[in-house]
Amino acid sequence: METRYATNPTDFKMYDGERIRNDFLVENLFVQGELNMVYSHYDRLITGGAVPTDKPLKLEDKETLKTEYFLERREVGFINISENAGKVTVDGESYDLNKRDCLYVGKGNKEVTVESVDASKPARFYIVSALAHTNYPTKKLAIEEATPTHLGSDAESNNRTIYKYIHGDGIQSCQLMMGMTLLAPNNMWNTMPPHVHDRRMEAYLYFDMDEESRVFHFMGKPDDTRHIVVKNEQVVLSPPWSIHSGVGTNNYTFIWAMAGENYTFDDMDHVKMEELK
């Protein structure tokens, strides 16, 4: 598992583009036959990607976590971002995940594996894990069962649908919050005007993009913004003090995941457009 350390906004002012990408962009999570993870010192969030082929992949990294098993002190969410069917097995019980289905697994489950239904057509699992203080039940939520929230408009180029999976009014967890936003065709902007939430960090996975598409992800303090150019299936780690907004060369989908102090989706400090620089 790779480790990413935290920084502060004063030091961030001195970073060039390469340093920003090295600290905040996760580029190669999804590799066939592998489970790859990144441990962030922002709220101890772990992001991962698993692409199982001929055998199941086990969720584990004892060397990094120094625990007997992965979920000894953690909880985790899985979303299948592939058209290909996959399966997550939790202490002997299996859950089928089609594209955009979500599974939450709580603290205390000892053996968790992911596999593809057809090894020649591997599923692609996005994985996010946060620290946990108690156990909540393992629960699956298919995208067809999730309640959509429609926001934005074509006139603002931000017509989008939000699906909340793991949150206060959905799948219960200790602190992990997880959901997905789909932009309609010909819409490119998300979360503009932006906001910050100094009580928790956020991670963005951008996907459903073709090879030539890019998202320009904006970050930094509202009065001193920077950007990262993001390709398909790459993750941006967003510090609590940073805005997190993006615009694409065409429409895209992204998964947002948060962890930190507060467990309220609406806990955010909005930024006025005139404050942005």
Rank of each mutant, 00 (worst) to 15 (best):
M1W: 09
E2T: 10
R4A: 12
A6I: 12
T7Y: 11
N8D: 11
N8K: 13
R19I: 05
D23E: 08
L25K: 04
N28G: 04
V31S: 06
E34F: 00
A50T: 02
V51Y: 00
D54M: 15
L57Y: 02
L59G: 03
E68L: 05
L71I: 07
F78I: 10
V88N: 04
T89D: 10
D91T: 07
G92S: 03
S94Y: 12
C102T: 04
G106M: 04
G106C: 09
G106V: 05
G108S: 01
A119K: 15
A130V: 07
K140A: 00
E145Q: 05
N158L: 10
K164Q: 11
G168L: 06
C174P: 01
C174W: 07
M180G: 06
L182D: 14
L183R: 15
N186T: 05
N187P: 06
M192Q: 08
R199C: 11
E202F: 15
Y206D: 02
D208K: 03
F216A: 05
G220Y: 01
K221M: 08
T225A: 02
R226N: 03
V230F: 03
N232A: 02
S238H: 15
H244Q: 11
S245N: 09
G246N: 02
T253V: 09
G260M: 13
E261N: 12
D267E: 05
D269Q: 15
H270P: 13
K272L: 07
E274I: 14
K277L: 12
